[in-house]
């Protein structure tokens, strides 16, 4: 019975981890067709910003966390303008060389992986140069919940709640706001959306900003429970983009289902065989999913739906 609770809590933990890690990336991948391998470093920026805000500026954690998100969002917008769309360098080159020197990375999946990996190297090592090999971390707030002979960190339950809240908020953003409607139209048919007056350039800039902000928020949220070092993004990166790809084209549902399925596998195998095996199991499950469900889980669901519709 207690082991059941342990497992349930571990699942909640894994779910929260995957959803929070993947959410920002899913939005960027879904709308822009860009795979941001510097995603882990955006998480790093959020984590360091909020930690340093608390330790050096004395800002309370509850305020520092959103600050981490916002700073990362701004950095994301900068990245989008300079690297992803190349708008800023092209602006300069148009006026000096009379042509564009950068082609945007939209829908160039392989190139965006390589280019953003370059960015991630710069950010990781830049952080190391600026702040050293580690900085002081924060203590986990709230303390433990006790049940029977076991205890569990309350904060991790808070994280799980936040991850669910995030899914709900993203769902709301996509289905009830005008921005969300235009974003979905852009995902479904980018060209026609432009013909309908959607400024796709601005939308991409905002999207990347939101996606980065979410990554930064994730970093800030996890900061009190992980070691503060320049490579902290690594533990999030692979799981997050595996979750995004396995999730499929639907941003909210895909991330939720990935979180559920992959999270369950991660929790069960970690519980039984330890964290290394747990991670391997998650990755192997992802490999199998990628092989047999090339459009991800929600892509597969969509295909079933279409087939059912056609037979009606």
């Amino acid at each position: 019975m207690v082991n059941g609770i342990n497992l349930a809590l571990q699942f909640l933990d894994s779910f929260a981890f995957i959803v929070l890690a993947a959410a920002g990336l899913a939005i960027i991948f879904g709308i822009m067709g860009v795979i941001n391998l510097a995603h882990g470093e955006f998480i790093l920026i959020g984590a360091y910003t909020s930690t340093l805000s608390v330790t050096h500026l004395g800002i309370p954690l509850a305020v520092a966390i959103p600050i981490g998100g916002v700073v990362t969002a701004l950095f994301g917008i900068l990245t989008e303008r300079v690297i992803i769309s190349g708008a800023v360098p092209n602006y300069v080159s148009q006026r000096t060389l009379d042509r564009d020197i950068i082609e945007p990375l939209y829908d160039r999946l392989a190139d965006s992986m390589v280019a953003t990996f370059g960015l991630s190297l710069i950010l990781t090592q830049g952080t190391r140069i600026a702040f050293g090999n580690s900085i002081d971390g924060l203590s986990t707030p709230f303390g433990p919940i006790e049940y029977g002979a076991f205890s569990y960190s309350t904060y991790r339950i808070v994280l799980a709640a936040v991850s669910i809240g995030l899914l709900v908020a993203t769902y709301y953003l996509f289905t009830r706001t005008e921005f969300g409607m235009r974003a979905r139209a852009t995902i479904q048919d980018k060209e026609t959306a432009r013909a309908m007056g959607v400024d796709t350039e601005r939308m991409y800039m905002l999207t990347f900003g939101i996606g980065s902000g979410l990554a930064g928020l994730t970093g800030a949220l996890f900061a009190p429970v992980i070691t503060m070092r320049p490579t902290l993004g690594d533990q999030f990166l692979v799981e997050s983009f595996v979750a995004v790809v396995v999730g499929g084209p639907s941003v909210v549902l895909g991330t939720a289902l990935s979180g559920g399925v992959l999270g369950a596998i991660l929790a069960v195998f970690s519980n039984l065989y330890g964290t290394f095996i747990g991670r391997i199991a998650l990755l192997v499950a992802a490999l199998i999913a990628l092989r047999f469900l090339p459009d991800g889980i929600t892509g597969f669901i969509e295909q079933l739906r279409k087939r059912r519709q056609e037979s009606e």
Partner: peptide, 20 residues
């Protein structure tokens, strides 16, 4: 850009409709 022209009053009905 296309979105600017749309805002200037050009409407477009693509071949194949391309509804969302």
């Amino acid at each position: 850009s296309a979105d600017e022209r749309a805002r200037a009053g050009i409407g477009y009905i693509p071949q194949g409709r391309d509804v969302f």
